[in-house]
Each structure stands twice: as structure tokens, then as C-alpha cells.
Design a protein around this nucleic acid. Structure first.
Lengths: 196, 196
DNA sequence: TTGCATCGCTAACAGTCGTTAGTCACCGAA
DNA sequence: TTCGGTGACTAACGACTGTTAGCGATGCAA
């Protein structure tokens, strides 16, 4: 067994998923066809099935890859010894950076998860709910400690996560602001909204 | 000519568009079929074409209805005599309320505009860019006047608009928070992020 | 009552969808 | 050199897509 390797030390399956992530973001999962994807990979549509099981398997892979990455990072932050405000900043910065350099993947996990088939859909939503709940818990603790202003924790979580995911609008027109400036501006805005 | 009227003093075309907005949000524009839509309207798919010209005409109608509503409201705010901070608050509250009681329409204009055919797509994006630019101008003026903290205006616009559009996550699980509480929490968070 | 416009229906179109079957060329191991 | 496996190909499947043509029923205006 060799020749599985393509360029960049990645399997063909990984190449397919990478190309698919670009395509799914541009056209949406539903509107992107396997023949589209095949063309970008440089192969006939039927040949894709030598490497993947189905179209939705690609979506599953992308969604859960992103979900797992966020989840394990959250766990690292939870067990760290920082102030709650600092914890939130760490998480926000992480979200921004993920959005900046894994844009396609994060975007799809954010917007195309609807098209996951069951039971993956429920699974994904459970993970998501859990993630947000735990973010809310951090904020709640911050309020109890007097570090964070009295605000409904879940609302704050919503605002923060949505704000970050709005970077996609910026991604498409990178002209005016640099990535670093964007990050620091965003953190300034969001953390200030939390501070007491 | 009568009998065009269905229930609720609305033309059948309006009924179609209303049902379509629900469907497009749930499934996405691409994945929602005309036969799906027809079933919800209580009619055969072909009969829809007695009232509309095409599937994408529905999308156009929805997207530009929302865009025009936001645009005309922005103009009202621009010509009003309020502090820039108050202007921003007015706009934010308006966005939140639109999101709460015209949820389906706003969601589609937010997420499904990609599927607009040209030249409507370009037209829509121009309007959107213009809207954001003018929001940014308000913030910029606020900074110049010393009412708003020194922040990159376009970043602030991005954060605010994205945060509000994230209410869709809340819409789906209305359990914990009331609409009024959500609005005031959100305003508190976002306006505080702006204040000097 | 006649005439006309409205609007629902069935049937069908041409195309696209994801996916499978089956075949053949290649390539490393024996 | 032979063998087994890998992966690309063509062809095709059945289902589904948006949309059109055309027929028939209905109901208002004259």
C-alpha cells in the first residue's frame, strides 16, 4: 500500500475533504454537487467513492472535527487557573483565530450542520448545547465573583459567539483591517461588554 | 377579478411567500423544493406558477423586502437628532425586534442571499455594503465627538450585526429568556462595548 | 346566457442529483 | 513473472429538480 499519498503528505480523502470545504462554503452543502467536487479534485465523480462513503460523510467529518477542536480547547481553559475574564478572553481569541485560519471548516460547522443526517444532527446539537452551557457557566462564575457585570449569561454567550462568527463577512473583504487589528478590536469590544 | 383573496386579506402570492419563508429557513433555499412548498400551500407544484414567476423570485422578494425595511429605518435614524450612542441603540433595538417578529424573513435575507441570481445578487450586496458603511459612519462620528470609544468602526459594525443575527439560536429554544429581557440584555452588552 | 379571465389540475420535459456495478490499468510484494 | 489490491474509468440506475403546455372548472361582467 502506497500511492495513497498525494501532495503535502495528506491522503486523498483529506484532499477531498479540503476541496469540499471550499465548495460547501461557496455554494452551500445542498447546492454543491459531487460532480462539482470531483472536478475540483481532478477526478470523475464516481471515483470519489473509492475514498469516501457518501456526501454527508464529508459534512460529518468537517462538523465534528471543528466541534472536537473547540471542545478540547474549552476543557484546557476550564482547568486552567485564570480569572474568569481572562478565560473568556482566551476563548474569544481562540474563536477568532480558528475563524481566521480554519475559515472554511468553521464556517461549515457554523452554517451547514443543518444538513447532517440523524443521528449525527442530534449528536452535533447536543455537543453545541453543552459547549454553550459551559461557556455560560464561566460567565456565571465571573458574575458571582464580581469580575463580570450582571448580565444574563446565555445572552452574553450568544452575543460573543455570533460576533465572532460574523468574521466571515470580513474574510471576504480583507482590505481595510489586518487580522491582528481585527482580533484586538474585537476583544476590546467584547471584553469591555463583559467587564463590570 | 376576485377570489385572489385567501384568508387574512392577503393575496395568494403573499401566502406562498410566507410559507416559502418558513420552508427556506428550515431546509435552506437549495434543499427546499417547489413540490415541498406546494404541499404547504395546499396545491400542486405547477399551480404555484399561476402566482409567481420562479423559485428565485420568491427569494428576491424576501431579501429585498428585508433590505428595504432596514434601509428606510436607517434613513429615519440618520436624519433624527439624537446622540450617536442613542442612534446606535435605536438601530440595535430595531434589529433585535425585526429578528424577533420577522424572524423567518430576516433569517433568509441573512443566510440565503447567496442563492440570488445576478443581477440581484450584486444589487443586494451593494445595498448591504452601503448599509454597513453608513452604520460605520455613525460610529465614526461618535468617536470624533468623544461619545464612543476609539475602536475600528467597521469591526464594531460587524460585531453588532453578527451578535443580533445570532438570535436565531435563541429563537429555536425560547425557553429560558423572555424577548424583552433578551433585548435589554443585548443592548446593555453591545452599548457598553461602545461607550467610552 | 354568453364570454372571458382566473386558477387549479395532470402530464410531461429535460436536466441533475447521489450513488452503484463492473471493468481495466497500474504497482508493489511474492 | 505472477498475484492481489488499489483506484480510476464508463455507464447507468432511479429519484428528484424547476418549469411548461394544455385542459377543464369556476365565477364574475355583459
Amino acid at each position: 500500500m502506497a500511492k495513497i499519498q498525494s501532495k503535502k503528505n495528506s491522503t486523498k480523502k483529506e484532499v477531498i475533504i479540503e476541496k469540499a470545504s471550499k465548495l460547501f462554503r461557496e455554494k452551500g452543502f445542498g447546492a454543491a454537487s459531487m460532480r462539482d467536487l470531483a472536478e475540483h479534485v481532478g477526478v470523475e465523480a464516481a471515483s470519489l467513492y473509492n475514498h469516501i462513503q457518501s456526501k454527508s460523510e464529508i459534512l460529518q467529518t468537517i462538523c465534528f472535527k471543528v466541534a472536537n477542536e473547540f471542545m478540547s480547547n474549552l476543557e484546557a481553559v476550564e482547568t486552567s487557573h485564570q480569572s474568569t475574564l481572562k478565560k473568556m478572553e482566551t476563548i474569544i481569541r481562540l474563536h477568532i483565530r480558528m475563524m481566521l485560519d480554519q475559515y472554511e471548516y468553521v464556517y461549515i460547522a457554523d452554517h451547514e450542520w443543518r444538513h447532517l443526517p440523524e443521528p449525527y444532527l442530534s449528536n452535533f446539537l447536543n455537543q453545541r448545547r453543552n459547549y454553550r452551557k459551559r461557556l455560560g457557566d464561566i460567565i456565571e462564575e465571573g458574575i458571582a465573583r464580581g469580575e463580570i457585570k450582571a448580565i444574563e449569561p446565555y445572552t452574553a454567550v450568544l452575543v460573543i459567539l455570533s460576533a465572532v462568527s460574523g468574521i466571515d463577512s470580513w474574510q471576504r473583504s480583507r482590505k481595510s483591517t489586518s487580522a491582528e487589528a481585527l482580533e484586538s478590536n474585537m476583544v476590546k469590544f467584547l471584553i469591555e461588554g463583559l467587564k463590570k
